[in-house]
Design a binder for these strands. Sequence first.
DNA 1: CTGAAAGCGCTTACAG
DNA 2: CTGAAAGCGCTTACAG
Lengths: 338, 338
Amino acid sequence: MEKETRRITIDQVAEALGVSKTTVSRAISGKGRIGAATRQRVLDYIEKCDYKPNIIARGLAQSKTFNICVVMPEDYHLSDLSFFQRALVGIQQFAGEMDYDILLCIGKEEECTGLARILTNRKVDGVILLRTYRKDRQIELLQGEGIPFVAVGDTDYKGVYQVDHDQRTACRELTKHLLSRDSADVALLGGRESLMITRTRLEGFCDACRECGREVPEELICLNLESRQAVDLIVENVLNKKVRGMICMDDVICNWALQKLRQERRKIPRDVWIASFYNSWVLENSDPSVTALSFDARELGKEACRKLFCLMDQDEVPQRTILPYRMVLRESTGDIFR
Amino acid sequence: MEKETRRITIDQVAEALGVSKTTVSRAISGKGRIGAATRQRVLDYIEKCDYKPNIIARGLAQSKTFNICVVMPEDYHLSDLSFFQRALVGIQQFAGEMDYDILLCIGKEEECTGLARILTNRKVDGVILLRTYRKDRQIELLQGEGIPFVAVGDTDYKGVYQVDHDQRTACRELTKHLLSRDSADVALLGGRESLMITRTRLEGFCDACRECGREVPEELICLNLESRQAVDLIVENVLNKKVRGMICMDDVICNWALQKLRQERRKIPRDVWIASFYNSWVLENSDPSVTALSFDARELGKEACRKLFCLMDQDEVPQRTILPYRMVLRESTGDIFR
DNA sequence: CTGAAAGCGCTTACAG
DNA sequence: CTGAAAGCGCTTACAG
């Protein structure tokens, strides 16, 4: 491995050209008056000798880090990881164009020492939260620090800038789609209640029931499903209640439910409908194909990042940005036949 | 949101205590001679007024960034994402203890502009590659820069420090386990050939065949399986060749294969054995339960990070570290019955 | 249009 | 044991 060679500095460039480093700095940044000729001369030389400014030093002088922090949940399987990964790609793409990088922080719900350390160390100029919680220590921490941040997902905390897909409407429309075609009820299978996303979707479900003139079927709302065993149990339970369909808040839950239904010899969509959130590879090419909501995670990431940069630049931005979704109807709800 | 308040600096601490900032710096770092009493006095004051040194400034002075870069593949489904996430958690854990953070770089095989930018910007002190390729532009780039880095996975490039599970032996033993019990052959279903991991496992497979005194069944080695359609085709194809079992290099592939087998009404393990790599939630509680190799991704991440820190500290380290695996025998290979 | 100088907030030989 | 000073590599009022 080559010995790490010390980089050429702005001083050396200045000296070589017989100008001050102020001038070099100005040529690079484009800020401040500078003659077109000198500017070009500097730029040419820099190009030629492959000078790259030291970003850390620039950061120190400008009180910037050129990094943002992205906080990602530590779940291993309860929500689809690829959603977060895609969002990350979107964020990285946008941030990269601004010459920013991503400091990753993977953390559990209760614990945010990682984020805390990054904040006290001032290693980032802003933060994106990829998930929100009912009681959200991340948000409390960030508001306490007064650092710009954007949350993906709903929140009850005041003054939080956020971006999300229209999860509530999505869940409402999906539910209505099923309710409108049969008088029997539809069950809702979901994840942890401590997640805002769970609540948001639940609200959409309730909206739909009401709008269809039905009571919200409390006994068919099954949350906090964290394991396959739990899902198996619930599916059995729900089937006994003569339910027409089930909506799963998560592809993993849906996948488990599907397997259980198969095991119970229930025909889909004949005996029961099933639909899922997030159209991920988990259910890709499933047989029967599964009706699902489709969200563009990458676009979401980009949008969150765009908003964060506005905040960091002190630009005006709307507090809330809601992104569209698509409802993809397939066989599992009897909407398409082969 | 509160106005971002300027932090207290080392100068202010020094002034308040009537000492030089040299002394304050020494008290904090523990380097250089300093009286125990003054040291304590400084530390107490710092504690009291909650002074936190500016890490960026420290970095500039020491030519360090206190960040490492982790390069993660951009695949959406072809390998199990949770493996990488767990590895990331392990890395974060170790790095965190050293007061380092992770700069994430998600990138495709062919493309490493992200990494390139991070390197030219000198934003990290070292790099961890979470996956290696036959022709690996990341490695070429890193060796060119002469920055310390550790690769997870095998490589043909010289002088690369690497860490990995014993994938070759694992695949060999798994294959031998099947071959030793039946004279019929076993097929190998795998992912992209451009990945080193694919080759490493393939080598293990071939080792096993030879050690069992058999010819390597070229027509049963099916690589570059990237879609469900491809897997379906291959499974059909392989079944026609009177194969006794199949080994899948990936839980996703295995999952698809399982579904295809089910569709074809093949009984597992009666008609065919199936085994998988990496014991992830994708196959969790699958029915029948699936024999798989089990790797501790988190430990792998930690180990890679530990090695990277040794390199950054210029400590001696072995070039190659091989971590153990576990073979978990279950129903799908007829090793356990309910 | 250009430059000398101070500053960002630390560390670290060097001297005493 | 302690401190003044130079240095890390930039930026940016301020003067000219």
